[in-house]
């Protein structure tokens, strides 16, 4: 019964620990997007993979209890709006869309390069939620299909 919704105990135990490590790595990639390779998209993909890892190990129902799907959905739309708002603030403050209206700061410092880290975080959330929903929706398709037959 339990095996139907997820994988074995070994996989689950390891996933429970490794999910947080993957999260950490994803956040690292996002926050250092303006200094090292990676950034919002790559980090967001890693975050989404952490969520999907959990989903594969525990099954859909437990994932639904673990993360708030509706909240994730709202975060996906809200992050796109936030991106546009940061861009429009650029028009308001510096006169052109997406202009870097924060001060640049020091080169190679973590808090530098103006709006780029903010945009990286926003993109990270967007990509994480978006990619997770792509796989999530495809898995819903599969269940409906079984129900039809």
């Amino acid at each position: 019964m339990k095996e139907k919704h997820g994988m074995t105990l070994i996989v689950r135990t390891i996933t429970r620990i490794s999910v947080w490590l993957i999260f950490l790595y994803g956040f690292y990639i996002i926050f250092h997007g303006h200094l090292t390779p990676g950034g919002g998209f790559a980090g967001g993909v890693i975050l989404a993979l952490a969520l999907l890892n959990y989903m594969l190990a525990y099954g859909r129902e437990k994932t639904e209890n673990w993360i708030n799907i509706n909240l994730l959905h709202d975060m996906e739309s809200a992050s796109a709006i936030l991106f546009l708002i940061v861009g429009i603030l650029g028009i308001a403050i510096s006169g052109s869309f997406l202009a870097n209206w924060l001060s640049g700061g020091k080169l190679f410092a973590l808090f530098s390069s103006g709006t780029i880290p903010i945009l990286n975080i926003i993109i990270g959330i967007k990509v994480c939620a978006g990619l997770f929903f792509v796989v999530w929706t495809l898995s819903i398709f599969h269940i409906e299909e079984e129900a039809e037959e």
């Binding site: 796109a80 709006i81 546009l84 429009i88």
Partner: peptide, 18 residues
């Protein structure tokens, strides 16, 4: 000019959010 692109994009995501 930029509003011609920003506005429909903003509307699309506002619709999904609200």
């Amino acid at each position: 000019i930029p509003y011609l692109i920003i506005m429909p994009l903003l509307a699309a995501f506002l619709i999904t959010l609200i």
